[in-house]
Amino acid sequence: MPGKFIVIEGLEGAGKSSAVALVKSCIEAAGHQLVCTREPGGTPMAEAIRDCVKQQWQETVTIEAELLLMYAARVQLLENVIRPALSQNKWVLGDRHDLSSRAYQGGGRQIDDSLIENLRAISLKGFTPDLTLYLDVDPAIGLERARGRGELDRIEQSGLAFFQRTRDKYLQLAAADTSIKVIDAMQPMEQVHQQIKQTLDAFLS
């Protein structure tokens, strides 16, 4: 069976880490070789960009700089890890991908969609995941969960209104793309995982 690219998406506190672990176990149990990635990050250069994006700076980080850094990291990961793995019929599981930029920078930062589409065309050249699981959570609940994990990074400190806009954009994009499946991440974890398994089973079959 050809390699597939599956992505886990969601706001802070949506439960992506546990979802990644669950999907990883399901894919490996089905007998597929799997490569796991995260964004921004996943290669030495992309990890350095991740540190650059997330830390606080003694200067204004423009929304354009943030967007360009995200796509710089993404294209490094795509060309050095994701495409080579898929060409070897390995499966790839991503903790975030392009949908994050469309939601966070497009929705949250309110960058014009046409600018993002131009960057997508240059860097991704039409590449898209086979399946995206979007874990939907109320931003107030998600941020409270994130605070419980420790100090928030620069993007996590962007404020509730930012994350509300980001969630709205996620849902808008999911409604327009049948490859994006919305998972209710405000359910008890057992039910969340059951919904993920059902969605994944349908995809694998």
Rank of each mutant, 00 (worst) to 15 (best):
K90V: 08
Y71H: 12
A140S: 10
Y104E: 07
E144V: 05
A140G: 05
T62W: 04
R149P: 06
Y104V: 04
Q157N: 08
G107H: 06
A121G: 13
S158W: 03
A175W: 00
L143K: 04
S18N: 05
I122R: 10
N89R: 11
M70I: 14
C36L: 15
P2L: 13
E59W: 15
R102D: 09
F162H: 03
T62I: 04
V20A: 01
P188L: 15
V61Y: 02
I111L: 12
E79V: 01
G13W: 14
M186I: 05
D201V: 08
G126N: 01
Q172T: 07
P84N: 14
P44A: 10
A202Q: 10
D168M: 02
T166V: 11
I63V: 13
E28V: 14
V35K: 03
G10W: 09
E156V: 05
P129I: 14
G108Q: 04
I27C: 06
S101A: 12
G142W: 10
E151A: 04
R120F: 13
Q164K: 08
K24P: 00
A46R: 02
Q105P: 02
E64W: 15
R96A: 00
G10Q: 06
D112W: 03
Q33F: 02
P139W: 01
V7D: 00
F5H: 06
I116M: 09
D177C: 03
L86H: 03
I180D: 08
A185P: 00
D177R: 09
A65R: 07
L200F: 15
S25Q: 15
L93C: 06
Q195G: 11
E144T: 11
N118Q: 15
K4F: 02
D95F: 12
V23R: 01
V75Q: 07
P84A: 14
G15A: 08
G42R: 04
H193C: 08
G159I: 09
G107A: 13
P2A: 14
A185K: 01
T43A: 07
D113Q: 10
A161G: 02
M45R: 05
F163I: 07
G13N: 12
I82Q: 00
A85L: 12
L34T: 01
N118W: 06
Q56E: 15
T128H: 01
T37C: 10
R149M: 10
K54A: 12
D130M: 00
D112M: 05
K125P: 10
L173M: 13
L133G: 01
G108L: 05
L160R: 00
K125G: 12
E12N: 05
L143T: 03
Y104G: 03
R145Y: 15
E117M: 13
E190A: 15
P40G: 12
L22T: 10
P188G: 14
E12Y: 04
R147C: 09
L160S: 00
D136W: 08
I6G: 02
M70Q: 12
H97Q: 12
I6N: 06
I122F: 13
